[in-house]
Amino acid sequence: MTDHNHSSKPGWADKKSFRNAFLGVLIVSCVLAALAGFIPAFQNPKPHFEQEHWGVFFAVWGFAAFMFIVLAGQHLRKLVGRKEDYYEERE
C-alpha cells in the first residue's frame, strides 16, 4: 500500500465554527421550507388526496420514505453482504 502525506492542519470544512454554521443554515432552511407548506400560494389548489391539505405532508412523507430506505438497507446488507476477506479466502 502507498502512504499518503496528510497534513495535520485541518481543512476549512473541519473547523467547528464552519460545521456549526452549516448545520444552522441547514436547520433554518428546512424549517422555512416546511413553513412554506402552510402558505396557500405554495399549496396545490386541487389535491388528489385529502392528506395533501396538511402543510407539511410532503416533508413528513419524504422523511418517512427516506427512513424506510435507510432501515431496509441495513437489513438488506445482512442478507446479501459478503465477509471482508471474501476474495482472499479463494486463493
Rank of each mutant, 00 (worst) to 15 (best):
M1T: 11
T2M: 03
T2R: 02
D3I: 12
D3A: 12
H4W: 15
H6E: 06
H6M: 06
H6T: 05
S8C: 13
K9F: 04
G11R: 11
D14R: 15
D14W: 08
S17V: 10
F18D: 08
N20C: 09
L23P: 08
L23I: 06
G24P: 00
V25C: 12
L26T: 06
C30S: 06
G37V: 08
I39K: 01
I39F: 01
A41W: 09
A41H: 14
A41Y: 08
F42W: 01
N44M: 04
N44W: 00
K46G: 05
H48W: 08
H48N: 09
H48R: 09
Q51Y: 11
Q51P: 00
H53D: 04
W54F: 15
W54G: 00
V56G: 00
V56H: 02
F57C: 14
A59K: 05
A59H: 10
V60F: 03
V60G: 01
G62E: 14
F63D: 07
F63E: 05
A64V: 10
M67F: 06
M67C: 13
F68E: 08
I69T: 10
V70L: 12
L71G: 02
Q74A: 12
Q74L: 06
L76P: 00
K78S: 06
V80Y: 15
G81L: 09
K83G: 04
E84Q: 05
E84V: 12
Y86C: 01
R90L: 15
